[in-house]
Amino acid sequence: MITRRSCLALLVLPFAAAAQTEEALSAAIRDAVGDKLATDGGITLRVPTLAENGGQVPLGIVVESPMTAQDHITAIHVFASRNPTPGVATFRLTPLLARAEVQTRIRLAEDQRLIVLAETSTGRVMRASAEMRVGAGGCLT
């Protein structure tokens, strides 16, 4: 959660800083999956249409995968496009899991895009995103 004071600081960030946010997001994604091309689809995101409390936003991720030793999801990466820093979490999965599903709670500073990447044991990267609306905002609490 972020205080009112730092929120005000965010509001007066110049446009150059907004560009840095995009750059930080691209860098975080590169750090996670390198230059692999991600294909859309195969991931279902369960998120509220409007997050009342930006400090505790429920997030459910379900990735289509047989979760066998040969073909399973190895990692799920979560990014937020307009938080002060883009990283949310990385989950490492194994075929001991019944399915490629994780539920958690995340922080969102303001309205923004949530980006989820899933890596398979066969070297593919899947991608999904959701436009998130934040009511009270992680900022004002």
Partner: peptide, 19 residues
């Protein structure tokens, strides 16, 4: 079985569900 690496966007009182 499962691990989570947390960054700033993970909420207070981290909560995780898996199967």
């Amino acid at each position: 079985l499962f691990s989570a690496d947390f960054q700033n966007g993970t909420s207070t009182n981290p909560y995780h569900v898996f199967f």
